[in-house]
Design a protein around this nucleic acid. Structure first.
Lengths: 329, 329
DNA sequence: CTGAAAGCGCTTACAG
DNA sequence: CTGAAAGCGCTTACAG
């Protein structure tokens, strides 16, 4: 592989001059600069990244910690696009992205100690307290992206995430304004803090519109669980005129159950989901839902982290979810 | 950050001894080795990756080139899981994965010249000829994973991919053995070579079972396009008793069209897809389909590449697709 | 504007 | 079994 030294030899200058030329330092004569650039071009020279990192103590790499479940069905749909956007956004800004699971204890610590990343995007709700403390102590630039462990909700922690409460609010408000008065919400309160927030949004909307009847079911946030719940609760269905399922997959389960019970959506019962996953586009009736703005999350996450790496400050940023109206409600 | 030198000072030995101890070289006394390891442990020492890479000319990083369209809807579903598996598999083997788009011309060349990866997993069908030649010339370990550009189908090129023809064969054979005789296949012959292969499998099955009637439609491989095609071709539907849609998304489009035409699946017309995407699990009727064994592709892709990086040889590996029987056929 | 030297944090051939 | 030295390929403070 060609090095700076090779170029220096050919150009008859010192390696430091080559370095300065190729890095566009100001006080190098135009002539030598051009000569050197031309030689570099011809030889297909690229800086050796390891050498640069070692010297500059900067890797131009962002570590992204993803949750274990990305591997199996649960997270798949939502994450796919997300990672794609992260990678592209980082690349456009001249950074690489190192996506990894925390496969063993202290993995994050090791990433930091081995200087393999300049900053961290934490996309796992289950980062250990120890790891977080280590990150803070070592003053490593980091952002909790999309997820934020419950333990840190009210702490002084950097994050970029969807305003879940707002999402719950928007969904519920939309139903109320369409005239629905008895709205059941299917949540997963015990699973993750974001469901508590969505439910808070639901409650707030009811309150703002002076609706007293609250129907909250705390279940597993899966297609099957939602389907089963609906099929088992026929009496409840009589009282209710709309359902806010707090994930799209649950909404699809609800719709399938209602179909099987010959309850028409949206005529007899409206259904709204949350996430705007692609499936919702193909399922009939097309799913009305709340979109988590993956695009913005990725873009702002990367942008803020890079800013943090350049100069440090706090970042506490909520991204607004968006209502997508289709057929189901 | 703590370095080998720090440890050496504390232990009262030469840095080279520290290096050898921590790397478990054989001829170091047990006593010093243990002493040094203990100090390293206490200080939370990790090797500086850049320094190691520079010295060893090895980054422990696998470059993964993904297609542009991963960013938008098309590839999303299939790829999600795939990347997750790749990352995990690589990590388990002590490698990192650098996932990148080829955002500019010569990007792959640059990755190579800057020594940022030890090997390449090419998951983009559109890698330029120039890039491929460069990879071959520089003797960089590489594998075409999942995709293989048409230009290289019969060339001496490393790949790990699904046996698409076999997939087409299995799907068609399944239908034939269930008693269907007039099988329409929806393909995308002009889009990608894999559709030609699937169609070849279809033809081969027909031939093996002595069926003369071939129905092949070459369309866009999307939900909408498949749906439209079915709705427009009512006469054809009269002649046909089963449909082999060469992607699941197309199969779902077909089913929706048939529903709207009040044609029951599978009673009036059987439908089989290809890919085994998650949606098929939720759509009614649950989709019978051919699975692309993502798991195996990822596992074998990583494994073979690592082997290639250690000692070079050829890899030409087909992975067998798998029939998933559900309700639609 | 350019050169010579030291250094980033490791590894390893050589010597003892 | 261990040390001293050179080197991986860059960058940059210092000097002129």
């Amino acid at each position: 592989m060609v090095t700076i030294k090779d170029i220096a030899k050919i150009a008859g200058v010192n390696p430091s001059t080559v370095s300065r030329s190729l890095n566009d330092y100001p006080n190098i004569s135009k002539k030598t600069k051009e000569k050197i650039k031309k030689i570099a071009e011809e030889l297909g020279f690229e800086f050796n990244e390891a050498a640069r990192s070692l010297n500059k103590k900067k890797t131009n790499t962002i570590g992204v910690i993803i949750p274990q479940f990305f591997d199996d069905m649960r997270g798949e749909i939502f994450f796919a696009n997300f990672l794609g956007k992260l990678i592209k956004e980082a690349q456009l800004r001249g950074y690489h992205v190192r996506i990894e699971y925390e496969i063993e204890k202290n993995y994050i610590k090791k990433m930091i100690q081995s200087r393999s990343v300049d900053g961290l995007l934490l996309m796992n709700p289950d980062i250990s307290k120890e790891d977080v403390e280590f990150i803070l102590e070592k003053n490593i630039p980091y952002i909790f992206l999309h997820y934020l462990s419950e333990n840190y909700i009210n702490k002084d922690i950097n994050f970029v995430r969807t305003d879940q409460q707002k999402g719950g609010y928007i969904a519920t408000k939309y139903l109320i304004e369409k005239g629905y008065k008895d709205i059941l919400t299917l949540s997963g309160l015990s699973i993750n803090h974001e469901f508590i927030e969505r439910t808070n949004g639901y409650k707030k909307a009811l309150k703002d519109f002076d609706i007293k009847n609250e129907y909250i079911l705390d279940i597993d946030v899966t297609f099957e669980s939602a389907k089963k719940t609906i099929k088992k609760n026929k009496p409840l269905l009589k009282k209710v005129d709309a359902i806010f399922a707090q994930t799209d997959l649950m909404a699809l389960g609800v719709i399938e159950a209602l179909n099987e019970l010959h309850i028409n959506v949206p005529k007899d019962l409206a259904v709204i989901g949350f996430d705007n996953i692609q499936i919702g586009t193909y399922f009939k009736p097309r799913l009305t839902t709340i979109e988590q703005p993956i695009d913005k999350l990725a873009k702002i996450g990367i942008k803020k982290l890079i800013e943090l790496m350049e100069k440090s400050f706090k970042v506490r940023k909520f991204i607004e979810p968006k209502l997508i109206i289709r057929q189901s409600a």
